[in-house]
Structures are given as structure tokens and as C-alpha cells.
Design a protein around this nucleic acid. Structure first.
Length: 278
DNA sequence: GTCGATGTTATCAA
DNA sequence: TTTGATAACATCGA
């Protein structure tokens, strides 16, 4: 599902193709996907141009001329697709923008957990969706990383998934990162020493950067803005591999629930750290 | 036809 | 502070 590498892939793909395009029309087919946002703001998009796209955590931030922002979250099954005009729309398409000439940006979301909001640029930094986010996990320095996780209680996997701690890691990459760092998902973060924290920090950078290079993981629903699948699922070491041998130690990959989330790990090389609680 | 799983986030309860 | 349950929603597979 769309986590940091998938959202980054979508943003990069769209940036290449829609920056500079002029918006000729905008349609909200399912008002629900605006959530509480002011629907009137969308009318101001007409005639404006796309200035740029950014990612923050799992959020897509589209800057529009006239001081406007489109904020998109794909949640579980959302897609942002760039298609030619007048292509058939299925019932899961909830929002679309037509560009002058040719091209149509569509928000499609089977489960409708995602959202598209439009507001003024000056309000961007005050938005709770943005303000609540922790740092970018593959860019944060080790001292900052150590500070964020070092004195936290709670299970390390749940902390990695907490967007206020680090922004952008989801279930797939949390499992892959922990496997690479040889840390059991149930490990209490307070028991991670300097060496383990550093391993975790390096594993985070390594996994996320490599996943971006392979254009994300298409386990089930994820597609990029051109409708194409990612390739990183072919390199998963634990996620979705229950019962298969660990590629590092040969033990059978196991699955358990951690904080209500299905979690894959290797019982051979991911041990819960012993010793007294800190 | 029903049930459970899927996996993101906000919210509420303990 | 942390953890768990729930709800939003639709689809798939058993």
C-alpha cells in the first residue's frame, strides 16, 4: 500500500508530467473524499497552473498558482492517475482535474479512506495533517533519530509506524527495516542500545532508498501515476513470506499481530532483546 | 451468504 | 504514556 517509497514514486512521476499545465476544469464526483474541507476552494482551481509537487510523509502536496494547495492522502487503496482526456471513468474515481489541451489527473480509491483537500498556501504549515508529522525517516540524522526513538517506551514496530515519530513508514517497510536491523518487532524501544539504534537507522535509510529506486512495492493495490506496478515486492525479505525460509538464516518466516497489525519477522535472526527494562 | 483479512489514521477507552 | 478496540469502506478468498 502507498507508503513513503510509493508516494515518492507517484510524486516524481507526476512532477515530470503536470508541472506547468493549466487546469481547465475540476470535478468532485464523491464529496466525501473532501472530508471536512471547504468545497468552495476547489472552484478557485480553474484557470490556475500546477507549480510543483512535494511529498511529506505519505502526503502529496501539490502547489497551484493563485496561492492554492491540493493535499492528497492515498491511505490504503488510493491512486493518483494521469490519463488522457475522456477515458472511461469507473465508479471508484472520486475526483478529477482536466488540463488544458490533453491530460486528466484522477483520484481513484476503492475503499475511500483517502482524501483530497484544497486550501490556501498560507494555511499549509498550520494544517494538522502536516504539523503532526515527525521527520523524514531516510533523511533524519543519527543523533536526531537516536533522540526520537531512544527514550521512548513501547514496541519498536509501533513506534516506526507512528507518523508523529517518523513520517512515511507503513506496515511493509516497518517489517523490512526491522528484519534488516535484526530487531524483533515486539522489542521495547527503551532496550535498544547505541549499536542497535544505529543499525536501525542505517536499515531505515537503506530499505527506503532502495524501495524508492525500485519504484515501491505493489503487493496488491498500489500503482504509480501511470498505472504501473512497483518492483520492490520482489526483494521483500519478510513481508508476505510467512512459512518461507529466511534468506539470511534459513529459518521459517513467521507472522504475528503487533499493535493490531500483521507483522512478518524471522524468528532466527530477529530476537527480542533481553536484559532489564530501562 | 458469512467471516476474516487487508493496513492507514483518528478517536476513544482503559 | 501507552495500548487496544473501533470505525471509515470495499474486495477477495476461504
Amino acid at each position: 500500500m502507498p507508503e513513503l517509497p510509493e508516494v515518492e514514486t507517484v510524486v516524481r512521476g507526476l512532477a515530470r508530467r503536470i508541472i506547468g499545465l493549466e487546469i481547465s476544469s475540476c470535478r468532485i464526483l464523491s464529496p466525501h473524499i473532501r472530508r471536512d474541507a471547504d468545497g468552495r476552494m476547489f472552484k478557485e482551481l480553474m484557470g490556475q497552473k500546477v507549480l510543483g509537487l512535494n511529498r511529506r510523509g505519505k502526503l502529496i502536496v501539490i502547489r497551484i498558482s493563485g496561492g492554492l494547495i491540493l493535499l492528497v492522502h492515498l491511505k490504503m487503496t488510493g491512486r493518483l492517475l494521469l490519463v488522457k482526456n475522456n477515458q472511461a471513468c469507473d465508479r471508484h474515481t472520486h475526483f478529477l482535474i482536466r488540463f488544458k489541451g490533453d491530460g486528466e489527473l484522477r483520484f481513484r480509491d476503492v475503499r475511500k479512506f483517502g482524501f483530497v483537500k484544497c486550501f490556501r498556501e498560507e494555511d499549509l504549515d498550520d494544517r494538522p495533517e502536516i504539523r503532526s508529522l515527525g521527520p523524514e525517516p531516510h533523511e533524519v540524522s543519527f543523533p536526531a533519530f537516536r533522540e526520537i526513538l531512544g527514550d521512548r517506551k513501547g514496541r519498536i514496530k509501533s513506534l516506526l509506524l507512528n507518523q508523529a515519530v517518523l513520517a512515511g513508514i507503513g506496515n511493509i517497510y516497518a517489517d523490512e527495516i526491522l528484519h534488516r536491523a535484526r530487531i524483533h518487532p515486539l522489542t521495547n524501544a527503551s532496550r535498544l542500545d547505541q549499536e542497535k539504534l544505529n543499525k536501525l537507522w542505517r536499515a531505515t535509510r537503506h530499505i527506503l532508498c532502495r524501495a524508492i529506486r525500485y519504484r515501491g512495492s505493489s503487493v496488491r493495490d498500489y500503482r504509480d501515476s501511470g498505472g504501473r506496478e512497483g518492483r520492490f515486492q520482489d526483494y521483500h525479505r519478510v513481508y508476505g513470506r510467512e512459512g518461507e525460509p529466511c534468506r539470511r538464516c534459513g529459518a521459517g518466516i513467521k507472522r504475528m499481530m503487533v499493535g493490531g497489525r500483521g507483522s512478518y519477522f524471522c524468528p532466527g535472526c530477529q530476537k527480542i532483546l533481553g536484559g532489564p527494562a530501562v
